[in-house]
Amino acid sequence: MGTIYRAIGLMSGTSADGVDAVLLQTDGESVPKVISRLMEPYPETLRQRILALYEPGADELDRMGVLDRELGEFFAEVALKVCQAGGCLPGTVDVIGSHGQTIRHRPPAFSTQIGNPFVIAHRCGVVTVADFRMADMVRGGQGAPLVPMFHRVLFGGEGRSTAVVNLGGIANITALRADGGMVAGDTGPANTLMDHWADRCTDGRVHCDRDGAWAAQGGVDTEALCWLLQHPFFDLPFPKSTGREIFGTHYLDEFLDRFPHMTANDRFRTLTQLTVETVADACQRLVPPSPDRVVLCGGGADNPVLVAGLQERLQSSEVVSSHSLGVDTAFLEAEAFAWFAVRTLRGLSSNLPEATGAIAEAVLGSIHLPTSHKSQTGWDRLDSMKPSLF
């Protein structure tokens, strides 16, 4: 084990419900030790402004610029709070890894995250690494998924095949084969369409189908499910990635228009089954005939209807939550970006070409230095890395 760094990871996913934060210790190579974690929800007005930037609109550059600064302040406050929760001062933290808030993901051209890292570095007085995706994309990759390397450290190397499935807004899979081979990519929507529908049918009062309660009261509309499964994304070869640009409000509107007579609960159940079918199909395609183990993480891992559906479709696989293996389902990605930030300081690559389609490995992220006095942590260690980084 190498030098141990104290790092913070900040993550907000496509659901835009808030910021997940983790304070941990790691060398950037082995399994980290978590010190503290917390989730800070976005105020509803802030969340709506984020969602409004997911699609083109009037004055979007001005709105993005203002929101970028505001989210930088918000992310910085969350970083300071997770320090307090862990009983440490910000000056003892070596690095912050901030994924930011994705507002557009348009592979292979670009991926845009906001939550200004200069603000975070200045407010916290800590070296901050951000903009993790573009280094992969300029090498021909999709810029996603990035977490498979971390998945392999957490769940690989046991001599059996494992599919790690993150059920966030978009679902992604890391297929770890028993022979050591790996492939990864996005499988399609996980919760995003269900979240949109919850927003729509409650006039914005509720943002998700909590515990699958509405889906549990509905039934699968076979004709509608067949139509949903015909989307060309599902037949694309891995690695691949997607986002709300494809599986967003426009797609939901088309679904609603084509099948106007479905009940609200039937829509929840059918959209849940879409996730079940596309995730199960990806598991069986990438680890035929089926992986020995499927590890679920992300918010969808707490949806009993979704989990039961995957258990039914993957009967020869052991389907478990990452929580049962000692990794909190909600904070795995925040842990990953803290881990990546340490790797960036060390000049180590963090993307996997077999996961993103890039032609080469890359050191991910841009480094943002605090404008306050030099601490004895991240600054000094960054100084020692200059020959390899610059």
Rank of each mutant, 00 (worst) to 15 (best):
P43I: 04
G140S: 11
I35F: 08
R37L: 12
T112S: 02
D131H: 06
G65M: 06
G65F: 09
C83Q: 05
F75S: 01
P32N: 11
D68F: 06
T128A: 14
E158L: 00
A85R: 04
A76W: 01
M64Y: 03
Y42L: 00
Q84M: 03
D59A: 09
H151Q: 08
F118A: 06
G87I: 15
A130E: 01
P43K: 07
A109I: 04
I103K: 10
H105S: 13
K81C: 00
Q113N: 03
D131P: 10
V119R: 00
G115V: 10
C83A: 15
R104P: 01
R37H: 11
S36Y: 12
A163I: 12
V147G: 09
G86A: 05
E55K: 08
Q101A: 02
Q113Y: 05
D59I: 11
A121R: 06
V153Y: 07
R133D: 10
L80W: 10
V119N: 03
P107A: 08
G57S: 10
G125P: 00
F150T: 05
V129L: 04
T45N: 09
P145W: 10
G97R: 10
A58Y: 15
K33Q: 11
G86F: 08
D59R: 13
V34Y: 02
G140M: 14
P90V: 15
I120D: 06
P148R: 09
T45V: 01
S98E: 04
D131W: 06
L38S: 13
V129E: 04
I103W: 00
A121G: 07
P107R: 11
P108A: 09
S111V: 13
T92C: 08
E55I: 07
Q84N: 02
E73K: 01
A144E: 08
K81G: 05
F75R: 00
F75N: 00
P56A: 11
G159Y: 08
R139F: 05
S98P: 11
T162A: 14
A79V: 01
R69T: 13
L154P: 14
R152T: 10
V93Y: 05
G87N: 05
F118C: 00
D136S: 13
V164L: 07
A109F: 03
K81S: 01
V66L: 14
T128F: 13
D59K: 15
F110M: 13
M149Y: 05
D59W: 01
L89R: 13
V95N: 12
G97A: 13
C88F: 00
G91A: 12
I50C: 10
S111F: 08
L67Q: 08
V66H: 14
I35D: 13
D62Q: 15
P108W: 10
F155W: 14
A121I: 00
R133M: 01
D62E: 13
